[in-house]
Simulated scan of single mutants.
Amino acid sequence: MSVDPSVIAALETAIAADPENPALRVHLASLLVMAGDPQRALEHARVALGHDPDHIEALVNARDAARALGDQALAERYRRLLGAASEPIGTFDADRWVETDPDDETEEPFEIPDGFAAAAPPDAERPRVTLDDVGGQEGVKARLDAALLAPPRSAEARGGVLLYGPPGCGKTFIARAVAGELAAGFLALPLQDTLSTWLGEAERCVRDAFAAASRAAPCVLLLDDLDAVHPRVVDQLLAELDADHAGVFVLAATDHPWDVDPALRRPRRLDHTVLVVPPDPLARETIFRKALDGRPVRGVDPVELARRTDGCSAADIVHIVDSAAELALQESVRTGAMHPITQPQLEWATARTAPSTRAWFALAHSHARYANSGGQFDDLLAYLRSNKLP
């Protein structure tokens, strides 16, 4: 959407004069989302949330910006915060308002009322990124080539791929890159968002998503948050996975593969499992460079920053850069002159950002050790051993 740059400039001037005003930042974040600048929108939304963690519009802006950046894990966290911050008489979702009785403790779904129409699935996007844009993850690329990319060239493709690993390590970005590699469309179905009080609505969302992917074929369909799928929706997913959707390449993503229904992982369904690990040093350097691209910087050493961030996810690194940018902004406001992001600011933010993947590996270790049926977590156990985790 076109946004008048003079309006954005005026808001930025007002914020420089009154940096503690969250309303100004929320307004600017909304405009930046519409103008296609989600990174700056997220920065302003975060500052606003620092003043008011329950600010509904700031949470909406942060969620929409994270989605536009392709960070589905971060977008999901803001979506959940949005629900928690909304009125207790219902659950707030960006696309839907469902009124509930606060005294009713049952979880029985209602029938879909006459005339109710679920939102149509979005049009497939055409990603311009490919696996060459994915920093590191050479093992993941090799597995994807063997499981998904090579078979279509021999016209023998069937089945799908389940990507799993710590949050924020790029599962959604990798799925989008696969679509770019195949010169295909890309659709994402966040299964967490299909949870509904309307009986049959979630199943219809799944049917509509597969139908939309078929119309856009060739198309990669990402089933995100696969562990969150409601039991009554599993049968619908199984039916779609067993159906002949020509030209649809199915990927799924989860942070908790041990919670995925085993029926979904049988042959010719999601029968390939690929571990997406935290970025290696070269990948971390690349992520720092991309996160800093377009920002004013001085004396920054991405190689040293990569060395200091072992175990950090891509989302952790973006958070480090955002935190350093906030320091630079505060310094600019304090002095009245523009101050770039510096190495000391990035190192300060790095020292205060614990790698988020550690907790996931501690949890994953017990599941991989005691629930490794059929060797499905052999690659995870190998990674834990080679990296002395946990």
Rank of each mutant, 00 (worst) to 15 (best):
Q330R: 15
N372D: 14
A324F: 05
L32I: 06
P390Q: 05
F361K: 05
V178H: 02
F288Q: 03
A157H: 12
L24Y: 04
R79K: 11
L346D: 00
P262V: 14
T350G: 04
V274T: 05
M1L: 12
A359Y: 08
W198T: 02
L270C: 06
A351P: 01
D18N: 15
P278F: 03
Q343N: 04
P167A: 14
V206S: 03
L282D: 08
V220N: 01
L264N: 01
V220S: 01
L389F: 09
N61V: 11
G294F: 12
A35M: 05
R215P: 00
P53A: 12
Q236H: 03
A35L: 09
A239L: 15
E76D: 14
F210P: 02
E331T: 09
Q236D: 02
P19F: 13
R207Y: 08
P38S: 09
Q192W: 06
A16Q: 13
D227W: 06
V260N: 04
V161N: 02
A228G: 02
L237G: 00
E87W: 07
A202R: 06
D104Q: 09
L163M: 11
L389R: 13
A41N: 05
H245S: 10
S323M: 08
R46E: 12
A118K: 11
A10Q: 14
A306Q: 02
E331M: 13
L182I: 11
L32C: 03
D95F: 11
G135T: 06
A291G: 01
D64N: 12
G160Q: 07
V233I: 07
G294C: 09
D95A: 15
N372C: 11
V7E: 08
R265V: 13
P344D: 04
N372V: 10
V321Y: 04
R289Y: 02
W97R: 14
L187P: 00
E76V: 03
D133G: 03
A211G: 04
H27Y: 04
L199S: 09
A253V: 09
D271V: 13
P166C: 10
V234W: 05
P218I: 15
R128W: 00
S373M: 09
A147S: 15
S6D: 14
C205W: 04
T309H: 04
T273P: 00
L346W: 01
A177Y: 01
A16T: 10
D123S: 12
R284E: 05
A325G: 10
A246H: 10
N387D: 03
L82Y: 03
V300F: 09
T130L: 10
C219V: 11
R266F: 05
G115Y: 06
A179M: 11
A29Y: 02
A14Y: 01
A349D: 01
T357W: 05
I341V: 15
E285D: 08
S356M: 10
A314W: 01
W258N: 05
L28S: 04
S373F: 13
A325S: 14
L380N: 00
Q72G: 08
I15S: 02
S332M: 07
L148T: 00
A188L: 08
C312G: 00
P262L: 14
D316N: 14
D37Y: 06
L59K: 03
L191D: 00
E138L: 13
K388W: 05
A41Y: 03
S86L: 07
L195Q: 12
D293W: 08
P231N: 09
D227G: 06
D145F: 11
E347S: 10
P121W: 12
H51C: 07
G294T: 09
V234K: 07
N372T: 10
M34C: 03
G50W: 06
G336M: 11
